[in-house]
Design a protein around this nucleic acid. Structure first.
Lengths: 192, 192
DNA sequence: TAGATTGTTAATCGATTAACAATC
DNA sequence: TAGATTGTTAATCGATTAACAATC
């Protein structure tokens, strides 16, 4: 498949597509194009999707359960390897095929399961404490759903998922729509 | 407060900050700076945060419950106005202070509650059907948590929350870290 | 009036795109 | 060899930043 076809499918410029792909290496053939199958493999490898990543979820409330049951992870190389919680009525129960363990086992679970990514789905009040334990146990990638900004050392990556930001973006567009209906053209300036 | 101070706090260039603020209007005073209180109000208004937006959540499983109980929405102008589901054992139960109604009431709820944003937290199989009903009922902003790409008319905004993308970003960085440990310097090129 | 700081114009920088030599 | 398409260099475009006239 040529860069032109790929670019059209992706909705980008073909020169940009070729330049971007060239960062990964020289996987095309002049006069012929790209082997899509091979390209998918190379990109997946580059993005780390060909590896298997063990994930631990801390906090087995509604959000933790939703994450544990979310099917999309498995086929992208993520394996939910452990669920931990503090509440006695949750510890020991089975969720998404795993037995929930007490949070006291965090350090030993990180070691035995080789946890690469820690997911924090606890209330805000517990998040920093859990984070500190992850960091002390050697986890350097953390996904935080709690509505607090976590303090971590330089070498640790934290990504914060703030569900209300998505709503805010929609609300902003919604407002623009009604403003435009009222002939307030200035809103278009902000579109850019 | 001067643009220099604001820029330092936000970690951006002061000229950029001034230029960006100038898009909203001329809210600074030469020789003096900006009134932060007033600036916050103007920006909030611009972003639509001073309005009250009614939100309906369809699908009251673990994710729907987590969203309904998420505290962060209220103080940003979002009000969960309705929870709808299909399952008889969920309909009629109380979640986050609201009684779950049957999805048959979608159209009437959109009208009576003046729903501005529809949140789809159903299984993938039901998402498009729910989406179509939202659109037919006049909702033009949809937040989709189901792992499917929704088909909507031009004038409808859809935002898709894909939880595995956040994990993928972490995995990519995690891979970079270990690659760097092995002296593979090429990964740094991708950082840009 | 002198000092400070905005809003905006001009200069710089980086990213996107067009063009083309290399080559399948 | 002739046609096609890559990988990359050069040109273009837009966004960021520096500089400064306007003005509080």
């Amino acid at each position: 498949m040529s860069s032109g076809e790929l670019a059209a499918a992706a909705g980008v410029n073909s020169a940009k597509l070729r330049k971007d792909l060239s960062h990964l290496g020289s996987y095309g053939t002049r006069g012929v194009g790209y082997d899509v199958e091979y390209l998918i493999y190379q990109i997946s490898r580059e993005l780390g999707l060909t590896q298997d990543w063990a994930v631990a979820i801390i906090g087995v409330g509604n959000l933790g359960r939703a994450l544990a049951n979310y099917g999309g992870f498995g086929n992208r190389g993520f394996r939910i390897a452990a669920l931990l919680d503090e509440a006695p009525d949750v510890v020991g129960s089975e969720v998404a095929g795993l037995t929930v363990r007490h949070i006291d086992h965090l350090e030993s679970v990180v070691r035995s399961e080789k946890i690469a990514i820690g997911v924090i789905a606890t209330p805000a009040s517990a998040a920093q404490r859990v984070c500190d334990r992850f960091v002390a146990a050697g986890v350097t990638s953390i996904l935080n759903f709690a509505p607090v900004v976590l303090n971590v050392p330089e070498h640790v990556d934290v990504r914060k998922v703030d569900l209300s930001i998505e709503l805010q973006i929609l609300a902003f567009h919604e407002q623009r729509k009604s403003a435009r209906d009222q002939g307030k053209d200035w809103v278009d300036v902000l579109e850019a």
